[in-house]
């Protein structure tokens, strides 16, 4: 399903980024980096716009030729970005949403871990395995 999963801190530096090993890693770093502008735009629109846009899930940020980029921002302004292969047309919005939910609960567990320092890069094994599961489903 996912080809790249990234967690970006409040201050816009990466806490966690992982992509499928077969492809050019740097390209995904660029894709995720670019997506942050769209995230910023969508989040700042909240408040002025309709109440239903107050959801944490931001939906499709932008499509490129090969990939679709989805975004999610927690209340603590931590961003999650998932990059999906465009060829995977069977993937529904609800599935993406549930992927983000899973990612968010796992991230919450990381935050509540007393050995984790907020703002450090994420090195949790259980978080890793959640992300792996999302990537395995794809192949």
């Amino acid at each position: 399903m996912a080809v790249c999963v990234a967690v970006i801190a409040k201050e816009n530096y990466p806490l966690y980024i992982r992509s499928v090993p077969t492809q050019n890693e740097l390209k995904f770093h660029y894709t995720v980096h670019t997506s942050l502008d769209v995230v910023e735009e969508k989040v700042s629109a909240v408040g002025k716009a309709l109440p239903d846009q107050r959801e944490l899930y931001l939906g499709l940020l932008y499509p490129t030729e090969d990939y679709k980029v989805y975004g999610y921002v927690t209340n603590s302004k931590v961003k999650f970005v998932i990059v999906v292969d465009s060829s995977n047309t069977s993937l529904r919005d609800n599935e993406i949403r549930s992927m983000f939910r899973k990612l968010h609960s796992s991230f919450t567990d990381v935050m509540c871990n007393p050995f984790y320092n907020p703002g450090d890069t994420i090195q949790s094994k259980s978080f890793d395995s959640i992300v792996s599961a999302m990537m395995v489903q794809s192949s």
Partner: peptide, 20 residues
């Protein structure tokens, strides 16, 4: 401070985004 950071992460997991 540290406990508050963790707690709020949990409590706001399913709430809508704050307006202001």
């Amino acid at each position: 401070f540290r406990v508050g950071q963790g707690l709020i992460e949990r409590f706001t997991k399913d709430t809508a985004r704050f307006k202001d």
